[in-house]
């Protein structure tokens, strides 16, 4: 597997990039497999054993939430975020960079504002609980479990996602500036969704 792009980067950055890519792979695999297994077991319980897992639905929802928010940055880096080229595509590479750079700055401002509100939301609603954890505990131990685990960390995923994505945007902006200053190939400096050279990141 080819993981993380390493060209003309300092060692620490390449190492970090590899570690991050590894994290993305491991997380994707674990979350996807868990969803499939839980849903499959749910069908089995319901149809074959005439019983149903009271917590399955809720846990699967949270797995989807984790997948969405922890992987947005990786999705951006892989060029999964759809954008329009019909206008910017007509411009020269330099002009495209000049248009896209402030757009990414704007998006970063938005995301960081959102993150700030997200932290507020998580602390305001930390008294909400995750019922499924208690259901699972009760199902496994046969005794009444009432941990009433706080939803705080689930809600914190929203600001975390914003910060991850803005970090990617900031790196994308650094690449764009380097491209504009002639320190790097301008074509390769275009952000992932606009770059016709497909990213070699986790391929």
């Amino acid at each position: 597997m080819k993981v993380g792009s390493t060209h003309d980067r300092p060692d620490w950055f390449a190492a970090f990039s590899r570690a991050y890519a590894g994290f993305v792979i491991v997380l994707s695999v674990i979350l996807m497999m868990l969803i499939v297994v839980i849903m499959g077991v749910q069908v089995f319980f319901r149809y074959v054993l005439n019983d149903s897992l009271i917590w399955a639905e809720e846990i699967c929802r949270y797995l989807l939430v984790l997948m969405t928010f922890l992987l947005v940055g990786a999705a951006f880096e892989r060029g999964e975020m759809v954008c329009l080229h019909f206008l910017t595509g007509r411009l020269s590479v330099r002009s495209r960079l000049l248009v896209l750079l402030p757009m990414h700055a704007l998006m970063t401002v938005f995301l960081l504002t959102l993150a700030w509100y997200g932290i507020g939301f998580a602390s305001l609603n930390s008294h909400f609980t995750i019922p499924a954890i208690d259901f699972i505990g009760t199902a496994l131990t046969g005794r009444e479990i009432n941990l009433a685990l706080s939803m705080y960390w689930m809600y914190m995923l929203v600001p975390v996602a914003c910060v991850i994505l803005s970090a990617h945007f900031i790196f994308a902006m650094i690449r764009m500036v380097r491209g504009l200053l002639g320190l790097a190939d301008p074509e390769a400096a275009l952000p992932p969704g606009h770059n016709l050279i497909p990213s070699d990141w986790i391929r």
């Binding site: 997380l27 989807l64 969405t68 992987l71």
Partner: peptide
């Protein structure tokens, strides 16, 4: 997982 994240 990555496509899902982008759609979501």
């Amino acid at each position: 997982a990555l496509t899902t994240s982008a759609i979501m």
